[in-house]
Design a protein around this nucleic acid. Structure first.
Lengths: 223, 223
DNA sequence: GGGCGAGCTATACCTAGGTTTGTCCCGTAG
DNA sequence: CTACGGGACAAACCTAGGTATAGCTCGCCC
């Protein structure tokens, strides 16, 4: 099967997960490809960080298996670049001679696992399993949030003003006072907001607004 | 241990953070204690995992500095025990001869950092700073959540039934139908719920209910 | 200039939410 | 037995939320 950088990545309507392997050693690529395919996982293999950066990110649950030592951009550099590009595919590192600071850096930046060569097949499969599961959940959340966000984009500035006050629990009359409006105006905007956001109740609206507010489930603490 | 008046921290009550050091080597304990006190941090030092398990967990923002190699319970064991005991004080590991799997395990279990000897003072201080900050945030969240939870405990079973339906956005009449009640009864419960929960609006109630539902910010998240 | 959308308001009307007061049943703790 | 808390309900009453219809000003684009 394909093991070369010409991968048929994302097929629309297809939800089958894929493992992206990046290693400069062809024999490692082949071995990993075989391993993942033996359990029915799709695989795309790359020889360098640059190669995978040029391909477009997959639209299905996926994970990266990355040698930390790569020609050109290292695995850690690639991790940082992906984060900067807002691509959050979970990463599993493999290394022959890594050290602890490297490991800590990778894990703090969100790696799922960090395996040392020789890697036991089962360990690798477990890690990939966990990573894909994580990505699946992340994508699910991302999907609903971006849905809400796009609805929010359709609101006029004034409607947004009203939304934030309404979602904070203020009464129409207080919203009106705060924005210098008549109460009736607030009521009308409110109705428009409910329609545009597709909320069937105030409770739903509040939850949507929460989802918008708590945007970055990013983890990394003090940057 | 040593309690010197903190230099310039004007805090009411006792909110001063503390660093808990666990190392079997007295000279290391002394060195770390001096280091932390030199920047105005309180310190308590222990010679073994058992010792610290017997002391009561601090009520102020704090963190653990833990040698991974300890007599009796190892640092990793202690980490696991604390997690089991629902104590989530952030942990910084130090090690002389750790390996990568150990590091990965510790980080996956939520350690803030994993430093190798010889530890540079600044690295240690940075890590402690970050860990304490993390604990401060965790405590803040924990405080408000447990506040909400205790209010929730004061609700009668029936009030809880009504709460969950109301918070999901259902109208009084629908709640009534679903629970086999008269609408007026739901209204009355609803009022009682608002009073007991201390919510001034439906929006607040919804948020409180969300906070109750999303209970465990377990380590390992990171979506 | 005319059309358009955003923003704002009013009148009128209806529904949903919420409190008060008072009543009743039931089980249990004192 | 009595007191008490939980649960349930009703009538009356008031406030808040929400829709429809209609009308106004502005600024913008063609």
């Amino acid at each position: 099967m394909t093991e070369r950088p010409a991968p048929s990545l994302p097929q629309a309507g297809d939800n089958e997960p894929i493992v992206l392997v990046v290693d400069d050693d062809p024999s490692v690529r082949r071995a990993l490809t075989n391993l993942f395919e033996s359990v029915g996982l799709k695989v795309a293999a790359f020889g360098s960080a640059q190669e995978i950066l040029q391909s477009k990110p997959p639209e299905v649950p996926s994970c990266l298996v990355l040698d930390i030592r790569l020609p050109g951009l290292s695995g850690l550099d690639l991790q940082a670049d992906l984060a900067k590009a807002n691509i959050h595919t979970p990463i599993i590192f493999i290394t022959g001679h890594g050290d602890i600071p490297m490991t800590v850096r990778a894990m703090k930046s969100g790696a799922v696992d960090f395996l040392t060569k020789p890697v036991r097949d089962q360990d690798m499969l477990d890690a990939v399993q966990a990573a894909i599961e994580r990505d699946r959940k992340r994508r699910e959340i991302e999907k609903t949030v971006s849905n809400v966000r796009s609805r929010f984009e359709s609101l006029t500035p004034r409607e947004r003003d009203v939304l934030s006050l309404v979602a904070s629990g203020k009464m129409n009359k207080h919203v009106a006072a705060e924005l210098g409006l008549a109460e009736i105006t607030v009521k009308i905007y409110r109705g428009q907001i409910m329609r545009k956001m597709g909320a069937k109740s105030l409770a739903e609206l509040v939850k949507m607004n929460e989802a918008l507010g708590i945007q970055p489930p990013k983890r990394d603490d003090q940057t």
